[in-house]
Design a protein around this nucleic acid. Sequence first.
DNA 1: AATGAATGAGTCTTCATTCAT
DNA 2: CATGAATGAAGACTCATTCAT
Lengths: 213, 213, 213, 213
Amino acid sequence: MQPNDTKEQLVKQALQFFASNDYERSSLNDIAEALGVTKGAIYHYFKNKDDLFYASVNRLLDMMEGWFVDAMPRDIPLKKLLDNLFRIDETMTEMGESSGFGEAVTDYKNIMYLFLAALKKFPDLRERLDDIYTGFRGALADVMAKAVEKGKIRKDTDIEAVTYEITAFYEGALLLGTFTNRKEYIVLGPRVCAAIWSQIAIPASGGHKGRKK
Amino acid sequence: MQPNDTKEQLVKQALQFFASNDYERSSLNDIAEALGVTKGAIYHYFKNKDDLFYASVNRLLDMMEGWFVDAMPRDIPLKKLLDNLFRIDETMTEMGESSGFGEAVTDYKNIMYLFLAALKKFPDLRERLDDIYTGFRGALADVMAKAVEKGKIRKDTDIEAVTYEITAFYEGALLLGTFTNRKEYIVLGPRVCAAIWSQIAIPASGGHKGRKK
Amino acid sequence: MQPNDTKEQLVKQALQFFASNDYERSSLNDIAEALGVTKGAIYHYFKNKDDLFYASVNRLLDMMEGWFVDAMPRDIPLKKLLDNLFRIDETMTEMGESSGFGEAVTDYKNIMYLFLAALKKFPDLRERLDDIYTGFRGALADVMAKAVEKGKIRKDTDIEAVTYEITAFYEGALLLGTFTNRKEYIVLGPRVCAAIWSQIAIPASGGHKGRKK
Amino acid sequence: MQPNDTKEQLVKQALQFFASNDYERSSLNDIAEALGVTKGAIYHYFKNKDDLFYASVNRLLDMMEGWFVDAMPRDIPLKKLLDNLFRIDETMTEMGESSGFGEAVTDYKNIMYLFLAALKKFPDLRERLDDIYTGFRGALADVMAKAVEKGKIRKDTDIEAVTYEITAFYEGALLLGTFTNRKEYIVLGPRVCAAIWSQIAIPASGGHKGRKK
DNA sequence: AATGAATGAGTCTTCATTCAT
DNA sequence: CATGAATGAAGACTCATTCAT
């Protein structure tokens, strides 16, 4: 195994470990054991405990950037994109699976803790995270702009507000799930999607056909 | 100074301290110094470090419950309520001031960390937090139901979805602020509010013309 | 209740407490709670924690002195005295009951620990304890001397050795009981008594005499 | 220095330390200093303070088992064995020297405290200790049985009682020494031995061979 | 006579980090 | 490359004792 591969492996495993274990409360002994190496080995590849954590979080950010920005489909019909997005649980699972990290990393609750711990230690990560959100919102705005052009949604749509609304709602829904331990977004996500859609869509024809009773 | 007063004081000060300092990383030495007492005094009133933290978080939850549930105005016009709510920054500041805790407790970024740290340590707090969110959404739903009756908003409004949407958006906006360190919600909050309102409001007269330019 | 009475009560209760609880491991808080008073009250009557312990142990020594020395029957037939003594368990129980302290103080295991802890802290107690053993052995020797006079036991009996033998055996039997948690002395005590008696008694008649000068 | 050697060394030195210092009152600082290592080093080899103590006491029990059970001479004339045993002080010293532990471990006073402290903390040690006593008594009983066969002692000897008598006396003599700080057993031990012997021996013949000058 | 709040020195324990091998 | 023994600073917690009331 090439040296670099070893380091890569360690980062990947460490990320999985940190996803399910609180960084502050994990001793290097625990970590080393979980990674199947000795403490010395870790110090061989990383400057210190923080360095390993930093590398792990960055690996996670790479993945999220790939998923939410680079891999964001931009030539898909807006309605379809939104429908997909608002099946929040499926989207998260899909992302987790495609990432190749275990399911521990998929669980938003874990990611939440991971990010907050990381941001507290490494404020410079804020910038990377910000880029990801900005990128995501940009992609969404692009698709909406196209939808306006195509006459799918109203011309007077406040695109910036709506992308922000969607992004914030997304995060908030996951956060509420973390707080309350109930995934209400599974049921309510699509209904919120419908509500938002009705707010921007151009009515097919006459009148509003009572989208819900 | 009465014993009870002392304990109360300690809880209050500890809450302020924990709002700006990470619980795990704060040594009892730091805490004691910040509270202006000796370690021994803390152990006189609290079983251990966790106990003090638990009491502090509960005090915060009391406050939030009072603000977001008990003090929630229920006979206010919906539009007015939403306008108020979506001036997120002002609402948070107002709540902070009314609480009597310092501004450290007002800052949502701090509360975020506080809650996540607390939930990790004391899973039973999840229930209290859940009650608060449920209470808040219930109050919101009540006002919306009345607005429906009064013909202010559409009869086919998916009240449950919209209240969830608002709550999650609220949390998400604050969380994004925490992540990115930018309070976009100051500008975008009201615009999102307008978008949501247009989605549920009954058009003043014929056709939906240019609710926003 | 007179002040002195209070102090007396405290000493008595403390003795019972120390009989079942290790002194070193008992905090003054525990002790105060067990005695049903506050720490302050203890400091009112005793100089410090050690002082209370010292008083308690002395009270126990008073009791033992009364039982093993002062109340030792000296005009009883030797055989009867020995028979009584070697029913070790009954003797200990009887002593405990007569003492008025609870049964915790009766249990030799507890006394053992108490003495060792006390001797370690207060070496001067050794003298008192020594006096008690000396007194006991003296009383025993007196009875044996009389038995020699009366022709009950052999004239060449090494009285000093036999009293020492009995005393040491007694302590040793109790100590073994403490170590092994089995009261073998209940069964074996009387048999040892018989063996010792046969060693000193004058054979009723012919028998094998003159094996000793 | 090999790892195992280091741990062994620590156990051995700790035993010597605990022999002369009360476990409860010894801080890990004291212990570490006495062993010539840092506290951290101790925690490297032992789970905690108790663990080190436990290992030390077990090492002592190993030694005692070796001495009092395994190394007990079984084909020696009973009289000689008893004579040896009842020179208590010499026996204890010999054992101490042969053990290789320092003289602190030899002193029965110390062993006493050690055992009681250990039994209080680790009740399971009682079993080991019990085995040692049982083994010792068994060996003694074997030798006595042979002596009966060879016509050296009386057939009606209550072997079980006598071995118990000897064992308990042994312990008791040492305990009295601990309590009173006087080694009376140096003088009285042999005299008690003579008394016991006269109780079981078969008179050689008519003559009085002066067991005592 | 009695309280109990408050202290601070001391306890056991953890852990990131270093370093000789 | 990798080990794991060893360190030492820092952590949470205990408790005998004091003192104002």
